[in-house]
């Protein structure tokens, strides 16, 4: 799946890559701490922190009470006073409980105090559907937070980027929200050793193509890659862009791709309306790349409903590979 995976290179799962990033950070930088519900002895809701508490101790890998608002408030305060907390939510859906701290405090304090302070806070959000966890544990809410100036929002789609973006987030003086797709935690891929960073705000072209730009986020990048492979048989050469960062969005990469292909499909798991794809589409429509569009822009996003519990309906509620395949064929063959 990962363009970088080669058998002779070291492979880690996405979850292991995140754990390794946190381990490196804890080791290299005494100001880094981990916070979250059940991240200590239990190892985290998705076993991402694992045994880090054994290595770094409970002073630096802290279980927080079952109050997202309280935990997040402590994390913002810690960040304001010199620490670099990495705060884990059990499910990204629970960000709703901590919105005051994220949106009104973390994102705004720097601005409201004239730049005299910053909030070097990293928040990790297990996100997305596909686990049968239903409406309150399956959402993709990156667009909520992407709407807030003062936050940075990233969505790594590979183990390599999961590690690189986390380490980059720790170097960022401002709050960075990392949305990790639960389905990706077990995905394996090459992960470089040691410390490195993946730039925030920079998309990755996962596959070069000339006929249509498929701009995807998170898990959808992999579905887009599968679709692109099948499209090859139709003689359609799709370019797949992994957006990686929702805010700030990599305008240049998207626009130059559209100038090349003249067609664009946005694929994202969040609800289609008012989502990430709307922003990508508008960005193209407002730019000089507009003049290169040779077909309507297509958005494939989540259905306009809470994620259903029924596994078939759950699948139907988010874009799947055949949807991308059909949309790409339509848009390239001039059927829409």
């Amino acid at each position: 799946m990962n363009a970088h995976s080669k058998p002779d290179l070291r492979e880690l799962s996405y979850a292991e890559a995140i754990r390794e990033a946190m381990d490196i950070a804890l080791t290299n930088d005494p100001s880094v701490i981990l916070m979250g519900e059940d991240i200590g002895v239990y190892g985290g809701a998705f076993q991402v922190t694992g045994d880090l508490v054994d290595k770094h101790g409970t002073d630096r890998v802290m279980d927080t009470p079952i109050s997202e608002l309280g935990g997040a408030g402590v994390a913002v305060g810690a960040a304001l006073t010199g620490l670099k907390p990495i705060f884990e939510f059990q499910f990204s859906d629970f960000a709703a409980l901590a919105m005051e701290q994220i949106v009104n405090q973390a994102a705004k304090v720097r601005y409201m105090l004239g730049g005299s302070v910053s909030v070097p806070l990293v928040m990790r959000f297990p996100a997305g559907s596909g686990t049968g966890a239903a409406a309150q544990h399956s959402q993709s809410i990156e667009a909520w937070l992407g709407h807030v100036p003062g936050l940075k929002v990233v969505q790594p789609s590979t183990p390599e980027d999961a590690k690189g973006l986390l380490l980059a987030a720790l170097e960022d003086p401002d709050p960075v929200m990392i949305f990790e797709h639960k389905i990706l935690y077990k995905m394996k891929g090459h992960v470089p050793e040691g410390h490195y960073t993946t730039p925030i705000g920079k998309a990755a072209i996962r596959r070069d193509g000339k006929d249509v730009s498929i701009v995807a986020t998170s898990l959808m990048v992999h579905k887009a890659m599968q679709a692109a492979e099948q499209l090859e048989a139709d003689g359609i050469d799709a370019e797949v862009i992994d957006l990686r960062t929702v805010r700030p969005m990599d305008r240049d990469t998207v626009l130059s791709s559209v100038r090349k292909t003249g067609r664009m499909i946005c694929v994202y798991e969040g609800v289609k309306t008012l989502g990430v794809g709307a922003e990508i589409s508008a960005m193209v429509a407002e730019s000089d790349a507009f003049d290169y569009l040779d077909a309507p822009i297509i958005r494939l996003g989540g259905a306009e409903c809470p994620i259903p519990y029924n596994p078939e309906l759950e699948k139907a509620a988010v874009p799947q590979m055949p949807d991308i395949l059909a949309a790409a064929r339509d848009v390239v063959k001039g059927r829409v």
Binding site: G262, F290, D291, Y292, L293, D294, A295, G334, R335, V336
Partner: peptide, 24 residues
């Protein structure tokens, strides 16, 4: 006509009205 067709027509001095469109 699509934006791309309009741009091309503009650049090449082609009268768009004269072209048969094969799209939807």
């Amino acid at each position: 006509a699509t934006p791309a067709a309009r741009r091309l027509a503009r650049e090449e001095g082609v009268a768009l009205a004269e072209l048969p469109g094969t799209g939807p």
